[in-house]
Computed example of a mutant assay.
Amino acid sequence: MSAVVLAGGNTFIDIPGGWVTIIVALITFVVGPWASTIVAARVSGKVKKVSEDVAATREQVENNHKKPDGTPINLREEQDDRHGEIVGLLRDHGELLEEHGKQLKKLADSDQEQNEWIDDFNNTWPRNKFMPPAKHRAPDNPNGEIL
């Protein structure tokens, strides 16, 4: 314990914990408000930033889609309607693809028939000296003689 002893042996001040306690108390008293002001200012700035972010988020999330009469649009119902339209379009597209596939098959069959007819015609039609075989084809007979 620290104490200030006066002349005659009387104790004037008896400080529990000593002078260190007084010094810490003075520092806390002088520096504390200043430090708490700085901390409060920093916290206040961060709180302000967070509240600005919240306001921006709220503005972005808020449903401001409205019909011409001013009633809000239920986006889920609108999406369901659009989904139904898209499914219908895909179904129609699938039917058109099937029809085109059938037409392409008919064209391929017709092309095959024409190719067979042309091959039969080329193989059976008699050639003469006025119409020699095409240079890109093999001769009609093994001797290479023009018929």
Score class of each variant (00 low, 15 high):
Met1Ala: 10
Ser2Asn: 06
Ser2Leu: 13
Thr11Tyr: 04
Thr11Pro: 04
Asp14Ile: 06
Pro16Gly: 04
Pro16Asp: 13
Gly17Phe: 04
Gly18Ile: 05
Thr21Ala: 12
Thr21Pro: 02
Val24Thr: 13
Thr28Ala: 13
Val31Ile: 15
Val31Asp: 12
Gly32Ala: 10
Gly32Lys: 02
Gly32Glu: 01
Trp34Phe: 15
Ala35Glu: 03
Ser36Cys: 10
Val39Trp: 00
Ala40Gly: 13
Ala41Asp: 05
Ala41Tyr: 01
Val43Gln: 10
Lys46Gly: 10
Val47Cys: 00
Lys48Leu: 10
Lys48Pro: 01
Val50Arg: 06
Glu52Asn: 15
Ala55Tyr: 02
Ala56Glu: 06
Val61Tyr: 03
Asn63Ser: 02
Asn64Phe: 10
Lys66His: 07
Lys67Ser: 00
Pro68Gln: 04
Pro68Leu: 02
Asp69Cys: 07
Asp69Trp: 06
Thr71Leu: 09
Arg76Ser: 01
Glu78Lys: 08
Gln79Thr: 06
Arg82Asn: 05
Arg82Glu: 09
Val87Gly: 05
His93Asn: 08
Leu96Arg: 13
Leu96Asp: 12
His100Leu: 07
Lys102Ile: 09
Leu104Thr: 03
Lys106Pro: 03
Ser110Asp: 14
Glu113Gly: 03
Gln114Asp: 09
Gln114Trp: 13
Asn115Thr: 09
Glu116Asp: 15
Trp117Gln: 14
Trp117Glu: 14
Thr124Glu: 03
Trp125Thr: 12
Pro126Trp: 08
Phe130Gln: 12
Pro133Tyr: 03
Ala134Ser: 15
Lys135Leu: 14
Arg137Thr: 02
Pro139Asn: 14
Asp140Ala: 07
Pro142Val: 11
Asn143Leu: 15
Asn143Glu: 15
Gly144Tyr: 09
